[in-house]
Amino acid sequence: MGRAGYGRRVCALGVTGVLAGTMLAGCGDDGGTGDDARGSSAKPGAGAQEQGTRAVRSAYDKTAEEDTARVKLRVQTSAQGASESANGQGAVDLDDGDSVMTLTVRGQRIEQRVVDQVLYQKMPKGQAPGGKPWIKIDLGKVADRQGTGDQSMSDPARSAAYAKAITDKDVTRKGTATVDGVRTTHYRVSVDVAELPGGDTLRRQVGPALPMDVWLDDEGRMRRQQIDMTLKAPPSEQRSSADASSSPQKVTVRTVMEFTDFGTELEADAPPAGQVTDMTGKALEQGKQGKGRS
């Protein structure tokens, strides 16, 4: 896959965090924002704006050249005035997308691996279905069922697809910030969802634009990426007529990833098959029901 796979890897991490924050946890109280950029917002001229666009477009390739990295993940999911946070840390292979992480959700620790686009999670004792410690979800199959192939938000866009969807008017330099002791430049990006593969489906899920912030170090590598999504959850067809007129529920998801220690060692192996319950069918069923209500 090489350098072009970095966009897929970043989004795969985001998806696993979303799964932890929504499928496995519920809603509680958490007020973090995940955005601590400092420095004055700049209003660059045309030349500076073009330079910023080039920097953002090339950041995926420059980061992928490092092969592996340590990663910190934070996902905040909010709905109906309540929010839930999931935090994780581990390592990611910047070439093939494999990762090993530990998530903390509602005070409980979940061991997580992504191997060959398959998500594995070791649930807290007594909480895994089927009497086995691990569950798995094939992210590629879920993406295919959603109709967006391997470049959707569930097995999402390669960096090349993001680059094509970013123009000079979509990138704004916001200033500088220190990320884990490293000086970075902060850019705000608005990705035109219609320009991404599977754009029609994505547009129904997240709207016309995908807000994204990136923090790049002096070598042009990604040190932090933040993606904000607002997902529409249509009312169920089974609701009463009194409820049918209610507006669709919106769920906001903020995913923040930070990258350090490029070149770190990583071994990501799938758990023994006898210890795993396959939840892919359940995920596909939920996706089909949601699609039928859209």
Rank of each mutant, 00 (worst) to 15 (best):
M1T: 09
G2P: 13
R3S: 13
A4W: 02
A4H: 09
A4R: 07
Y6M: 15
C11H: 09
G14D: 12
T16H: 03
G17Y: 05
A20S: 11
G32Q: 10
S40K: 10
E50T: 05
R57C: 12
Y60M: 09
T63V: 09
L73Y: 02
G81V: 07
A82W: 11
A82Y: 07
S85F: 05
G88P: 03
G90P: 05
A91H: 10
D95P: 01
D95Y: 07
S99N: 11
V100M: 08
V100F: 00
L103G: 02
T104L: 08
G107S: 08
Q112A: 14
K122D: 03
M123W: 14
M123Y: 11
P124C: 08
I137S: 06
G147H: 03
G147E: 04
S152R: 01
M153K: 04
A157Y: 01
A161K: 01
A163N: 11
D170Q: 12
T172F: 03
T176K: 14
D180S: 13
V182T: 14
H186V: 13
R188I: 00
V189C: 12
R203I: 02
V206E: 00
D217R: 05
R221L: 07
R221W: 09
R223Q: 10
R223V: 07
R224V: 01
R224K: 15
A233D: 06
P235K: 11
Q238C: 05
A244W: 03
S247H: 04
Q249I: 10
T252Q: 13
T252F: 04
V256G: 06
E258Y: 00
F259C: 02
T264V: 13
L266E: 06
A270D: 08
A273V: 10
V276L: 07
K288E: 15
R293V: 05
